[in-house]
Design a protein around this nucleic acid. Structure first.
Lengths: 235, 235
DNA sequence: GTGTGACCAGTTTTGAAATCTGGTCACAGG
DNA sequence: CCTGTGACCAGATTTCAAAACTGGTCACAC
């Protein structure tokens, strides 16, 4: 055993991710994944309880990368913690990751029934809670308009984000825009509706570190689910 | 022939619409439509060139109803011509018409490949032109913010509208909102981003009749396509 | 202890026959 | 001569059983 277990897990995930993108959810077989990762089939099951858990882990790893990148943005420039900037970054970072994009556009060819499974909804739940916490903190720091409720931010913001994702995917060619421009439009909409007219730079600086931890916590939770999916066995 | 031809066409469309909603695109058969409409199968083909043309006509008739209703809103209250109000009305009227809703949410189970066909894209084209004209007139009357380009209105507005439609369809139950509230949120987003701070009431009153005609023209064009689909034969 | 692939049961794919359906048109009815 | 019809056809879809495949296990090799 000349190799690190975590490195092996990542090699398996690499193979699975590659197949998932190339062939779509249905065609990914454990045999093929194992072959490409250079391990025996049984070895895959030493890491994940089932095929579904493996593919879910692939998505989670992509998501970790995305959230880490967004956290990095905020760390570098605290002003990026504002709703419009953070969602814009989320949009761009997701767009650059095909599997995450598939997640947001409900691409069932690529993701199959993965998001509808119990572990899938569980993961969505974790993400949801994080977002609600983010909105809550934004408000506490005076970075949301007073005349818009948190429920409205939560719903309308999701709708807008969703709209931009689907639009970029299936808009006819004559409508296509550069990603950065789409992200800019998205930011414009969110800023105009949900941010106060003159957001306090100081408030953003105070909030930024909290959001960075929040995102890193989320990444950590995901990381746990990727490499220790069997943590709550024997239910 | 004791009956009006247009009435017969509508009876066939009624039957087809019913089946389309009940059974979805794939299961609608011309035989069944004819039987329910109380006519022979061949008679259906006296009205429409093909199955696809018939089903397209069903959608067009629904759309005509929707646009007519929106036009009526604007006629009753000229202030409803503003982007946020008109889109909000469009949202509500579409939501009340399952087939139109299916159109906006790309419900392929119900619509099949209908929107992707040549006549489908042609119809979309007509609608698109009408919307562009609407944006153009809004700007001419000073009812759009000067700092947002028409291209941005066109793209971002579509994205936002799209987002609210998809959100209402597939949001998890705990997110569900009353339609009117969703429409209100939609209006709030569009107003904040695209409308000038204090839109002129007088401008709206001047514009309203033009938009009413624009919508009625669109309805007329659709009407033509519904009952005379073979107008451009022998290509 | 760690890793493997032969093995099993249940699912999916295959392919050819049977059925169905969009579209036509010769003819009935007036 | 005109309108409306349903039997008919070719091609598409469904059916169903046999064959092939695949997720997951575990006895065994190292």
């Amino acid at each position: 055993m000349p190799e690190n277990k975590s490195a092996r897990a990542d090699r398996i995930l690499d193979a699975a991710a590659d197949l998932l993108l190339r062939w779509g959810y249905r065609r990914v077989t454990i045999d093929e994944v194992a072959k490409r990762a250079g391990v025996g089939k049984g070895t895959v099951y030493l890491h994940w309880r089932s095929r579904e858990a493996l593919l879910m882990a692939v998505l989670l790893r992509e998501s970790v990368g995305m959230f880490t990148a967004v956290a990095e943005h905020v760390r570098r420039d605290p002003d990026q913690v504002r709703l419009s900037a953070l969602m814009s970054a989320l949009y761009l970072e997701s767009s650059a990751r095909p599997l995450v994009l598939a997640l947001y556009t409900k691409d069932t060819e690529t993701l199959g029934t993965l998001v509808q499974t119990s572990s899938g909804t569980q993961v969505q739940g974790v993400k949801l809670v994080t977002f609600e916490e983010y909105y809550h903190l934004l408000r506490e720091h005076g970075l949301l308009r007073a005349d818009v409720s948190n429920d409205e931010v939560s719903y309308a913001c999701a709708a807008v984000l969703f709209g931009f994702f689907t639009m970029s995917q299936l808009a006819p060619a004559e409508f296509a825009q550069p990603r950065e421009q789409e992200a800019g439009m998205l930011a414009g909409v969110l800023r105009a509706r949900f941010e106060p007219p003159r957001p306090s730079k100081r408030a953003a600086e105070a909030l930024a570190p909290k959001i960075v931890s929040l995102l890193e916590d989320l990444a950590t939770q995901y990381h746990e689910l990727i490499y220790r999916p069997d943590i709550s066995e024997g239910g």
